[in-house]
Design a binder for these strands. Structure first.
Lengths: 221, 221
DNA sequence: TAAGTCATTACGGGAAACCGTAAAATACAT
DNA sequence: ATGTATTTTACGGTTTCCCGTAATGACTTA
């Protein structure tokens, strides 16, 4: 079993639950941090000391406070860590159950497990740790469909970007300009209209306002 | 100090933290539930048994699952309990830090304390319990301004309604019709335009889409 | 190479949103 | 009661959005 584990979660009360799970698995060498930057530093230092952590269990959202942080979210932390140190296993433990988020974390950042905080969260976390130790991948049941290709709703990053720009108050004309500036194509007004129209149909939205509201509720932006 | 307490929170890991706080206060008679309906039933039964609970600590959001619930959120639970049983002290312990939410809970439902889950959550919860026991009211620092009248941004229920209807996909014309149907005045297209325009300025929004996005982020709708 | 499919772009008409101005209705003071 | 301020409503002009059609270009397949 893992012998050296680090937990990153700004809610002290949650870490306590995770600790008890680790205890049940006879993992005693556990470090707790409440800031992503601390996690990053401790993990880096442990590598230099030739005593690297084997597993990171981290939350996604960290409430900002007076301390300025380089890594402001679990996602940023994970991205940095997995790039520099692919050997470190990472399990994300979060209330977030949006498939889009999970997809990105698994496919882009190669995390080893994703557990939703919930009634069965700690039970699932237990399983996730065991599976991960055996080089497997664990996803909570409610997000497993995130990876199955059939659940491909055909909304890609471009679509998300459009809606995000819309929600930031840009007109379709301004979106066109922005895409040109950022060298993103397609960027004609007509295509932008057409894409947004497709999205409206897909999400059964009456108009652009409705679309933004729906997509915001779904947590896609 | 309180002698009989009940905790309602669907995340088992969080309840553990709360338990340790209660333990530090030498409160040992503690009941835990993970569903609002269970909380309601246990509290009601305890009254019948002449051994009522003195304090409820509850979360706001409960993830829906297979079990059909009469009370689906902490807010509904609180509303029902405080109405039938004003003596029961209630502390809400939630990640939610939207002032609007807190305002409603305090003013309308008369809760005794509101603590935000966060780094200092458990410390604040400790204080909240003590204060509440002395018949005081406790609010986490970040939401204290919720009650100060100066934070009155002059947005009333009518404004919120307009934005909510907008976010539901209604056009201004459809909003006019809806207001007429519901016998809400003013309900002319012109006034609706004007109000929304005022709101756009107030929230520094470029257009209606932007307005809805901002207000959604603020948690007002 | 030719035909066919699909994404991208262009354009035009009608609907809705946006904006200013002004008239009508209402509330409120002396 | 009368004048003043505020709210509500009405209206016209401009911009943006919404929607259909069609032309262009890229790519696949025969």
């Amino acid at each position: 079993m893992f012998s050296k584990v680090i937990i990153s979660d700004d809610l002290g009360s949650i870490s306590q639950g995770v600790l008890s799970v680790l205890g049940n698995l006879s993992i005693t060498n556990v470090t707790q941090v409440q800031y992503c930057d601390d996690a990053y530093l401790k993990i880096s230092k442990a590598i230099l000391d030739q005593e690297p952590f084997e597993l990171l269990i981290t939350d996604l959202s960290f409430i900002a406070d007076h301390r300025d942080q380089k890594y402001k979210s679990g996602e940023e932390l994970v991205a940095a860590l997995k790039q520099q140190n692919p050997d470190l296993k990472i399990i994300v433990y979060s209330v977030e159950d949006r498939l889009q988020k999970v997809r990105v974390l698994v496919n882009k950042h190669n995390i080893d497990g994703y557990v939703c905080k919930g009634r069965r969260g700690l039970i699932e976390l237990d399983q996730a740790i065991v599976t991960t130790y055996q080089n497997g991948q664990y996803l909570s049941p409610q997000v497993q469909q995130a990876l199955s290709p059939k659940s491909n709703l055909e909304i890609d990053d471009y679509d998300i970007l459009l809606i995000k720009l819309l929600s930031n108050g840009l007109s379709q004309e301004q979106i066109r300009e922005q895409l040109k500036i950022d060298n993103i194509s397609p960027n004609s007004l007509s295509t932008i209209e057409k894409k947004l129209n497709k999205l409206r149909i897909q999400f059964k939205a009456n108009n652009a306002i409705h679309l933004v509201a729906i997509v915001k509720d779904l947590g896609l932006i």
